[in-house]
Every structure is written in C-alpha cells, then in structure tokens.
Design a protein around this nucleic acid. Sequence first.
DNA 1: GCTTGACCTGGAGCGCACTCCAGGTTGCAC
DNA 2: GTGCAACCTGGAGTGCGCTCCAGGTCAAGC
Lengths: 145, 145
Amino acid sequence: MAAVILPTIDAEVPAGGLSIGAVSEATGLSIDTLRYYEKAGLLLDPAPRDPGGRRRYGHDDLDWIAGLIMLRETGMSIADVRRMAELSRVPDTEAERLVVLEAHRERVLAELEHTRAHLTALEKKISAYTAVIALTADHDDDPAS
Amino acid sequence: MAAVILPTIDAEVPAGGLSIGAVSEATGLSIDTLRYYEKAGLLLDPAPRDPGGRRRYGHDDLDWIAGLIMLRETGMSIADVRRMAELSRVPDTEAERLVVLEAHRERVLAELEHTRAHLTALEKKISAYTAVIALTADHDDDPAS
DNA sequence: GCTTGACCTGGAGCGCACTCCAGGTTGCAC
DNA sequence: GTGCAACCTGGAGTGCGCTCCAGGTCAAGC
C-alpha cells in the first residue's frame, strides 16, 4: 500500500486499465472503500467495466481518485467530496470549483493553525514533565539514596 | 463558548466551584460531553458534588480538563485519554506519562506534515484551476466575443 | 472439467464520539 | 407554595466512514 501524497499515482496503466485490486495497492484505499466511494457518487462516473463486469480503471479515473484522496486527507467530508464531484460533472463550472477548493484550503489552514496551537500547549506540558523528572532523577541519582 | 487553546481556562473559580453549565461555557465542551467524559473515565476523578448532588468543578478539575482538551484537539482518542488518566492516578508515573506525551507529540507532528503535503497538492490544483479560468476569462473579456 | 483466487452485488454491522431523551430533583425568585 | 431553569441519571439514538458478509460469477491454470 503505497501512501499517495501528491495528485498523481505511480502506477503505469496497462491497456485495458487496472483492476480494483491494483488500484487499491496503488492508492492505499481498500477495495471496499473504492466500491463504497463509487456507490456514494464520489467518482465522476462509475468505473468502466470489462466484459465480465469487473472494474477497469483508466488514467482519468486514477487522476480523479488522486484528487479525491487529496480532499479526503485534508479533511473534506464524504458529502462535500460528493458535491465537488457533482459540480465537476457540469461543464463550465471551473470558477465554482475553484471557489469550493479555495474555501476548503482556508479551512485546512485554519485547522493546521488550530492544531499547531494545541501542539504548543502539549510541548509546554512536556517541558513541565521533563523538569519534574529531572528533579526526581537528581534525587534518585544520589549515590547515597 | 470560548475556544480554549492553551492549558488554562479563563474563568475565575468562585468558592464552591463552577457549575457544569459554567464549565461548558468556559471550555466550549457541551454539558453532555462533560458528563460523558466523566462517565468514560477521562477525568482524574468524578467532579465533586454539592449537597444537592450537582457537579462543582474546582481549579484542579479545570486544569485537568484543559489538558484533556489539548489532547483531544490534537487528535488523541478517547481510549488513549482514558489511559492517560489512569496513568495519572498512579503516583510516581511521571516518566511514563512523559513517554506517552512524547509519543503523542510525534504522531501530531507526523499528522501535521501529512496534512501539509496534501495541502500542497491542493494548492497545486487551485493554481491549475486559476490558470484555466484566466484563459476562459480572457476569452469572455474579449469585447468582440 | 475443476479448482482457485479475484472479483461482483446488496445489505448488514461496527467503532467512534458524541447527542438526545425521559423522567425526576433541586433551589432560587416571586 | 408555585413556577422555572438548571441540574441529575441511565440508556437509547445518531452520523460518519468505512468494513464485513453471504452468495454468486468469472477467468486462468492444471
């Protein structure tokens, strides 16, 4: 399970596309999750099927999934990703999509800031504990104790 | 509902302590959440009660709750906060607590890094959209179009 | 032709972190 | 002493995001 970080997935797509198992491998999403996302309308379209009815993901599908992962990993809800997908199915909505992405970016920045602030508190607490322990250790290190 | 950021809560504690409503106000935690945390063992001890059976939070209780919020807001699970509370009830476990806090800090840093990486992808996507829209706008702005 | 493993569908189940509810008590204000 | 808001308890319910399951199909290898 390769951890996907950037909006490209490092898997060459053979002619005929990738199986759901291969996509799961490449993205780190479970097979069940991939099916769930499809059913939930998070993909632009259901993945194309081969004659036997199995999913065969192409290049475009992977690109979309990479973007989807980017949104989910930055905390966008399933419902909001679905809205983004719905919007992306409508032609000439680039401006609207941009608005959504920028609003999301703002939320992500705010959340990072929020977490960082609490992290500072955590580090203060760690310092306090370190100080207390240093004192105790002094005591214990006393060869006469 | 004041947003609590640092491990101190800005509310003077009158003699006799604060009601659960006042603590909810001061911390931003809902009354139900405060009761839930208590029942779930996230507090050092159940909040002290007045003769009528109502909760009266003292200084120490608020300090602990502030630390609890710090842990929750940096993504520690309820189960792990409970473990921390259990540990904190045992005397002379400062070193163990420090280990837990430092491990948590590492996780928080990793998660921040992870989110930042995905944020970068998001910003790349935003740039791409901005470029596309600029082109479209050029078109539309053409007085002859 | 048989086995095996990867895949299919619809739907149920789960873990988490609350949130809500019913029915009751308390205590102050008038 | 009546009304009212704030509080109490135990327990049920909720929303989210998966995850698992039963029962079946398909395709490649032996």
